[in-house]
Design a protein around this nucleic acid. Structure first.
Lengths: 202, 202
DNA sequence: CTAAGCGTACCGACCAGTTGGTATGTGTCA
DNA sequence: TGACACATACCAACTGGTCGGTACGCTTAG
């Protein structure tokens, strides 16, 4: 993909490679050499763009936020007029995205934060931002839905975070079971929960 | 715990140390030297009891299953007559267990499987068994509750796995947010889901 | 010319695993 | 009873390879 000749693309190639490798092997097991080989770049290029492996970790998680943010921003589930319909369409989209191996469908932020939450504050903070950003995709819609149909003890922020948590957990169990169908089934449970909360029948 | 004098306990000490270190630092970042230091044992003892670090990983996950299995087996939530009450009491127990740092409340199997699911089939299988075992703690009760109050499209096995997934995901978000209160809030959402499913008011 | 972008060669630290050895049983047979 | 063979449990020093990171040189655009 030689978009523009002369433009720096080693950095982009490294970040894209990181998205795959981090999800497949985790942060610790992914070596700098692995990343360079996958990106078709040498170590010199790596440390030209990133001062350390940790700095790449932060950049990769932020890159992940951007990639997924763009994906959901341009998705057409926003077209629904009813905010609850938008939330349900979002969940349906997330469900249909689950295909193939865990390295293809799981989440960079969730995978990475499990390993480094106690050892790398910078990556942990980036992962936190990424997950909050993911929750933000539905938080406003949930707030609007709750305004129309209040549920005692439930607030939009907490519910949005729970949806993210349930999906993250589905990835974990999907990896353990080595079977994406349990991820799909779990997301269906999340959809059922949202419908039950708002008294919407299937 | 000097049960019987002369009995080997380096193995036990290593496994107990592994439960802490694996949850705190993850599998990759936990070195054999770390484990030996935490257990107060030398490397010679480590490789006397385990042929490799991977073999310890498998043993540690199995040890985790035994420890948590014993914890839930002797818990008194089983006393409830109604199976749904037992499930709700189980969730309440899990919620009250969330305190302190992620290294104290999170799950060895879930943390480890994220890293090694693609690289170590043996540990992955052990983690899978552990998570299935966790689901088994409530699966029979869910089956009984569903027998009394069937819910279309919901089976006990899938629901039990979803409960495990939601809790695993709560740990992930708890680590990212560095705040156990989001874990508690997520488990409360799971409790609300179960109550809604079975038409049980709070 | 100059500096950004990238490559090659290399270094020191670290880490999983090895080696060779000690201490303490434990069964057994004269 | 005791001495010999053997096994288990553990220790400390070491090794070979790997990994994150560095030094430095070459190329090309402005």
């Amino acid at each position: 993909m030689p978009a523009r000749a002369g433009k720096p693309d080693a950095r982009e190639k490294l970040l894209d490679a990181a998205l795959v490798l981090l999800r497949e092997k985790g942060y610790g097991a992914t070596t700098v050499d692995d990343l360079c080989a996958a990106a078709g770049v040498t170590k010199g290029a790596f440390f030209h763009h990133f001062r350390s492996k940790e700095e790449l970790g932060v950049a990769a998680v932020r890159h992940w936020s951007e990639v997924t943010g763009a994906l959901f921003a341009q998705a057409d589930y926003h077209r629904h007029e009813d905010p609850l319909d938008r939330v349900l369409a979002y969940l349906e989209l997330r469900r249909t995205l689950v295909r193939g191996s865990a390295g293809a469908y799981s989440c960079v932020a969730g995978t990475t934060v499990q390993e480094i939450h106690a050892t790398s504050p910078a990556i942990r903070a980036a992962a936190d931002e990424s997950i909050l950003g993911g929750a933000a995709h539905i938080e406003a819609d949930l707030a609007a839905a709750l305004a129309r149909h209040p549920v005692p003890g439930v607030d939009a922020h907490g519910l949005a975070l729970y949806v993210q948590a349930a999906i993250q957990g589905a990835f974990v169990v999907g990896k353990a079971r080595d079977d994406p169908s349990v991820v799909v089934a779990s997301i269906e449970h999340v959809e059922r929960y949202v419908r039950l909360l708002f008294g919407r029948s299937a």
